[in-house]
Design a protein around this nucleic acid. Sequence first.
DNA 1: CAGTATCCGGTGCGATACTG
DNA 2: CAGTATCGCACCGGATACTG
Lengths: 153, 153
Amino acid sequence: MEKSEPVCQIVRTLDVIGEKWALLIVRNALRGQTRFSEFRDGLGAPSDVLTDRLAKLVAHGILEKSTYREPGERARPEYRLTPRGEALRVVLAAMIQWGDEFNPAPQGRSAYLVDAKDDRRLRVAYLDDSGAEVDRGEVAIAPGPAATTTWVY
Amino acid sequence: MEKSEPVCQIVRTLDVIGEKWALLIVRNALRGQTRFSEFRDGLGAPSDVLTDRLAKLVAHGILEKSTYREPGERARPEYRLTPRGEALRVVLAAMIQWGDEFNPAPQGRSAYLVDAKDDRRLRVAYLDDSGAEVDRGEVAIAPGPAATTTWVY
DNA sequence: CAGTATCCGGTGCGATACTG
DNA sequence: CAGTATCGCACCGGATACTG
């Protein structure tokens, strides 16, 4: 996984969520799913792949595995998002937003970005440090201090 | 690729950029790379995989292939981002932002999100329809009209 | 229920070599 | 320079069976 520790934040993020199913597990976890069988049935992912992905997400600090015991029931494992994992919502939000505008499904939208308190529709935008919105046409990704000349990693 | 046309915008977006190298090609294209050899050398991706990814990105309308002829030179193919492809910057921006905060490289940052006009640092945030920023702790992803009961796709 | 184990075919992908 | 051709392996993923 980590051969030579990439510097690029995009590559580093892809190391965590770039494998197939990983990001979709996060999506379903954000919807409230916590159990192995929920993920398996909700995603249609094979058990062994799911086992592997859950373990990797735990190792990356995205999910936390614990044991949940209902009174009178036997203990069951559950997987809950850490704050680090919950923060990945911004990546999902960006993908939803791009999909809405540039790759919409003919049947309509399957997800909205909303304020949890009052269900107002939200969107993702770029802000400067004063909190003012910046038009996306002006936004660029510039090399930082740790960028190599080739920007490979 | 498209078996039964998924509805979920996340799945639909992953169909476009979910394969290995695809998003990194977009990253390098946003940095100004246009030629096959630039991508190959800049990414370290094998030629045949790169051929496949470039073709798929063209098929998805992310890149546009054209022929560029320098005066006195022979024609060369080039790949340029379409507006649809440029808009994927928001996904890269989200990944950069998450990486900065939750998975930083020890050497520091390799990329900043900036205003192209004046190089001010920018960030990605959630806005409501009045343009006010919403704290990320309040944000949720809610099922839309085309969501199935299981939310699988 | 929540996994782990095994088999196995398909494909993704990396390395190398070759071509117009 | 911009790919194609070929090869081999590793991983993906579907099915099935098994365990505590």
